[in-house]
Design a protein around this nucleic acid. Structure first.
Length: 576
RNA sequence: CGGGGCGUAGCGUAGUGGCUAGCGCGCCUGCUUUGGGAGCAGGAGACCGGGAGUUCGAAUCUCCCCGCCCCGACCA
């Protein structure tokens, strides 16, 4: 039983000055966590119980799925990370240190290498697969900007799993098993979440999804279709377009367009010259970029911007994308800055990538590759060729859902889980192979699956808190029921203590506010701040042989006969 | 890393050149109070982030450093 009189807990009346987001403010005020350094937090008893409850649920679901728990050190040697090139690739985000002999060590940011090596050390036959193992461990990343309290820390608790399979079908099955386990886990945590398709990025995996808990303070942006449920990370959103249905345009017509460096100024000129009704979306923007050392042109409708992050996510293998600079223009004399059109791209030796909205047969107003000249009726497929269609424009609310063509909304969320098919990158780098049926050596294929455990504490808090404090789902709360004794008479405290003990005997986890010196008001405020889902007040109603039962979330209050209290409270708490 | 802001007691803060650094919460002692963050009285707690400088005198001005928060860039 948690007794308030002895609990290491000091609630704060004022919001801490360094906390902005609600979960952070309340977790500090309610005495769950304390900041030690930027992005580094200590857990006080209430917070640690909560964190362990979440760990417990995750562990139960992982075990139920047949995954096995292991544990690695947080302090790791350099060599394995050297072999996979991550000692360098991870860059400044990696916490590095040296031992007394001058050897390099790191604090693990994620443990692919160690898992791979563990399996390599123990297994060597296809008969041993499939295998899924996981750990719950503190991870370290020297984030450039830790923020939002526990949501993005430099040390945090993560559950990471890895699956090992012989072939792609096996990997798909392991992936699905994790997906289902995650659904069960997050449902039990009481989180609202969307599973969104993500881009697997440079890792080269074939499938990747994120579990996003919607919340205004979240730092991830995603697209959601409220009609059909389609959800995607903005980078992974796809565009569905209809074939061009308009009539074919007349031949290209070049016209003078002095001083129209921007799309807006061009549209003004068009309306003046060719009559009103021209829109930015009738024009074609040619964005010149350098992808690593290759010049590319990205065509987007004039009313759209290129989202470099999204573009890069859709160009696997490309490490750096940047805008053309004057020096780059100098290398392509055929390109007239501000008046570029795709008509001469072939001639200039530039690869043309285009937004899918630039469909075959559609015609556009674009630059004429000559100073102060534009051209209209430039038709895709007739006057220029697109080498490749690519999703690269900035996604906007109101863009159409690729499934059902309904305008989508854009929402913010906290990423609480990420599952993806890693493939053979680590197995190859660390030479994890097994012998197959035919006695041939085969590289194992892997999946990687993470849950932000400490982050989940904040995510649940964000989704459940209200103006007066935290408000946990029962399985996560530090206790099931919070018994508050008010008044000063010994009988009250005696009755409250007995009730608390009886409830505990029944199997409930009880927090008991047995403080003699605190006023009723203080105790009520604290109980509401702390957020245990049910509050039982033993106080003035005791004179009539009753106690008060409150539901934290709804604020409902009711009176219960003391004699029936244990049973009724037990029933109310456990059925909820 | 770029932009903005901040650093005074455990927490929230006042104090923009003047002598003993003030207030609220919390904490300790006593009395009173006890259903919505109680009252009175007394008390403990601060090298004013650090260093250097300017000055008769620095929390206050100058310079350097450190730390923290927010926005952006970045990020399983």
């Amino acid at each position: 039983m948690l007794k308030m009189s002895t609990l290491l807990l000091r609630t704060l009346r004022d919001d801490p000055a360094d906390a902005e987001v609600a979960s952070h403010r309340l977790l500090v005020r309610a005495g769950y966590v304390r900041r030690i350094a930027a992005g580094i937090y200590s857990w006080l008893p209430l917070g640690y119980i909560t964190l362990r409850n979440i760990e417990r649920i995750i562990r139960e679901e992982m075990d139920a799925a047949g995954f096995q728990e292991v544990h690695f050190p947080a302090l790791l040697p350099r060599e394995p990370y050297e072999k996979t090139n991550r000692w360098d690739e991870y860059g400044a985000d990696l916490f590095r240190l040296k031992d007394r002999k001058g050897n390099d060590y790191l604090l693990g940011p994620t443990h692919e290498e160690m898992f791979t090596l563990m399996v390599k050390g123990e297994y060597s036959s296809y008969k041993d697969l499939p295998l899924s193992i996981y750990q719950i461990q503190n991870k370290f990343r020297d984030e450039t900007r830790p923020r939002s309290g526990i949501i993005r820390g430099r040390e945090f608790v993560m559950k990471d799993s890895y699956s090992f399979d012989l072939d792609d079908e096996g990997l798909a099955a392991s992936y699905e098993a994790h997906r289902q386990a995650y659904i069960k886990t997050f449902d039990r945590l009481g989180l609202k979440y969307n599973i969104v398709s993500a881009v697997s990025g440079a890792m080269g995996g074939s499938r990747s999804e994120e579990f996003l808990a919607p919340c205004s303070t979240g730092e991830d942006t995603y697209v959601l279709c409220e009609k059909c449920g389609y959800a995607a990370n903005v980078e992974a959103m796809t565009t569905k377009v209809e074939a061009y249905s308009g009539s074919a345009a007349q031949v290209m017509e070049i016209f003078d367009s002095p001083s129209t460096p921007t799309i807006d100024s061009l549209v003004d000129l068009l309306n003046e010259k060719f009559g009103p009704g021209h829109k930015a979306s009738d024009t074609l923007k040619n964005v010149m970029l350098m992808a690593d050392s290759k010049a590319i042109s990205v065509l987007v409708p004039g009313d759209r911007e290129v989202d470099l992050k999204r573009l890069q996510a859709n160009m696997p293998g490309v490490e750096e994308i940047r805008m053309f600079e004057d020096a780059d223009f100098a290398k392509f004399p055929g390109l007239v800055k501000g008046y570029i059109g795709p008509q001469d791209a072939k001639k200039n030796g530039i690869e043309v990538l285009a937004d899918p909205r630039i469909v075959i047969g559609s015609h556009w107003i674009t630059g004429a590759n000559a100073k102060d000249k534009h051209v209209r009726f430039v038709t895709n497929g007739r006057d220029f060729e697109v080498d490749k269609y690519i999703e690269a424009v900035q996604v906007r609310a109101g863009d159409l859902c690729p499934n059902c063509q309904t305008p989508v909304i854009i929402d913010r969320a906290i990423e609480i889980g990420h599952i993806f098919q890693l493939g053979r990158k680590y197995a190859e780098a660390l030479d994890l192979t097994v012998l197959d049926k035919d006695g041939k050596s085969r590289v194992v294929t892997m999946g990687s699956y993470g849950i932000g455990v400490s982050r989940a504490v904040a995510a649940v808090a964000e989704q459940t808190l209200d103006e007066i404090g935290l408000s946990w789902p029962r399985e996560i709360a530090p206790a099931d029921v919070h018994v508050v004794a008010t008044g000063r008479e010994d009988e009250v405290f005696q009755a409250a203590k007995t009730l608390a003990e009886d409830l505990e005997e029944k199997g409930l986890r009880v927090m008991y506010d047995d403080r003699r010196e605190a006023s009723a008001g203080v105790k009520f405020k604290d109980a509401e701040l702390i957020g245990i889902p049910f509050i039982v007040v033993v106080g003035k109603a005791l004179a009539e042989g009753k106690v008060e039962f409150r539901v934290r979330k709804s604020g409902e209050k009711s009176e219960i006969e003391l004699l029936k209290a244990v049973t009724e409270i037990y029933n109310a708490v456990t059925k909820a």
